[in-house]
């Protein structure tokens, strides 16, 4: 996978990198059990501070997205192993942001619900297609 960060944006590098891994895992670009580059490899490839990569991996591990096997490396975690409570908290945060945004845009509940369901259906469709393309149905 192509990792990319823009060190000169106003968003911290660790946030950029973390979001990137999360998106890659969510979209199936990074598959369950797939190995991630080592801290050293990624830091040198992107020319960023190894402490930053380390911080990203630590936070992702805490969120149950990746796991580190001592001496073997860092891997994308199996879905069932994710901590339910953490998962719920993360989802809650995302939903909160959605609500704030909707409120600011003065979107009413009905429209919000409709759009949400539409998006969900759309996403499922994409995931299904992706699985077929990659022959990865489970």
């Amino acid at each position: 996978m192509w990792y990319y960060v823009d060190p000169h944006s106003g968003v911290p590098i660790y946030v950029q990198l973390k979001e990137q891994v999360k998106k890659a895992v969510a979209s199936g670009l990074l598959k369950e059990g797939e190995q991630l580059p080592s801290v050293r490899e990624l830091a040198l490839r992107l020319t960023i501070n190894p402490n930053t990569v380390y911080k990203v991996y630590q936070e992702l591990e805490r969120e149950g997205i990746i796991e580190t096997a001592r001496g073997l490396g860092t891997f994308v975690a199996l879905k069932k192993q994710k901590d339910a409570a953490l998962q719920e908290a993360a989802l809650d945060r995302a939903l909160e942001n959605l609500m704030v945004e909707a409120y600011q845009l003065s979107v009413d509940s009905k429209t919000l619900k409709e759009q949400f369901l539409k998006k969900l259906a759309n996403w499922k469709e994409r995931l299904r297609k992706g699985d077929e393309d990659n022959d990865m149905g489970n």
């Binding site: 060190p7 000169h8 590098i13 801290v39 020319t47 960023i48 501070n49 190894p50 402490n51």
Partner: peptide
């Protein structure tokens, strides 16, 4: 850095600092 050692990087090259500084 990867050896756990410390770097004091004085610069007005903000781009370099922005990439690597803690």
């Amino acid at each position: 850095s990867l050896q756990g050692k410390t770097v004091f990087l004085s610069s007005h090259q903000l781009h370099d600092v922005e990439r690597v500084a803690d």
